[in-house]
Simulated assay, not measured.
Amino acid sequence: MKHLLAVTAFIAGGAVSALPVSAQDADVGAALYENTCAMCHGGMGKGAGELADLLTVAPPDLTQLSKNNGGEFPMGNVISVIDGRKGVRAHGAPMPVFGVVFRPGGAGPGLEYGNEVEARGRTLSLALYLESIQAE
């Protein structure tokens, strides 16, 4: 129920509830993950990306988010980290380098006009993908 409320609040907060957002899909999220996260977090999300050894703070195992949160996926927290509202020490603040792609109103590939709907769809797609790779 918390998951549904977080997603509903996230979408409604952007006043997009009446608009279809086809990017809200774990498959889209998988492609976004591969292009923006895997270099540090690893292809399987376990924190063993190609750049992990170069970082001063080791990337976390993203497959353990639910386990580390009492068995429930922390959807609201994950969305807040992805879109830059909540900083992460390893990131130095909001999401680095690619954060603008996920920030509502940001610029970036396909977001030249600050397309908030698309940014929110990307953010939710990535969060749904991360939820789908949680360890049992």
Results as ranks from 00 to 15, higher is better:
P59K: 02
V21L: 14
P60H: 01
A90E: 00
V7R: 15
P96L: 02
S80N: 01
T36E: 04
A15D: 07
L51D: 10
R89P: 04
N69K: 14
I11G: 02
G43K: 05
G92E: 07
V16N: 14
G84A: 05
N77Y: 10
V78H: 00
N68D: 07
P60M: 08
M75W: 11
L32W: 05
N69Y: 09
A31R: 06
G29A: 11
N77E: 10
G45C: 04
L62G: 02
L65C: 05
M95V: 09
A23C: 15
N69I: 07
S17Y: 13
N68R: 14
G29K: 01
A18R: 14
P74G: 06
G99R: 00
A12G: 02
A30M: 02
A58R: 12
T36S: 02
Y33T: 04
Q64A: 12
G45F: 05
D25T: 13
I11F: 09
V16L: 14
H41T: 09
G92V: 03
G43Q: 12
H91G: 13
A26L: 08
G71A: 08
Y33C: 08
G29N: 03
M39P: 02
Y33M: 09
A93Q: 09
M44I: 13
Q24V: 08
N68W: 14
Q64C: 13
G43I: 06
V78L: 12
V81E: 07
G76I: 04
A93D: 06
L54P: 11
I82L: 03
M95N: 11
L19V: 15
A12R: 08
V7N: 12
M95I: 01
G47R: 09
I11N: 09
T36L: 02
A31M: 01
V7Y: 09
P59M: 00
F10H: 03
G84T: 00
G76N: 05
D53M: 14
A58P: 00
V88P: 01
V88I: 06
E50R: 10
G71K: 06
T8V: 05
C37E: 03
F73K: 04
F73E: 05
P74E: 03
G47P: 13
A12F: 01
V21I: 11
R85P: 07
V81A: 03
S17Q: 11
V78P: 04
A26D: 12
V97R: 03
M44W: 15
A18S: 14
D53H: 15
N77H: 10
L51T: 08
G29E: 03
A52K: 01
L62F: 09
V97P: 04
S17M: 15
L19E: 14
Q24D: 05
N35P: 12
S22F: 14
A38F: 02
A23H: 01
G84Y: 03
R85A: 06
N35I: 08
F10Q: 04
L55W: 10
G14V: 04
N35W: 06
A12I: 11
V88E: 06
A38L: 11
G43Y: 08
N35S: 09
A93W: 11
A58H: 11
K46Q: 13
K67S: 07
G29D: 04
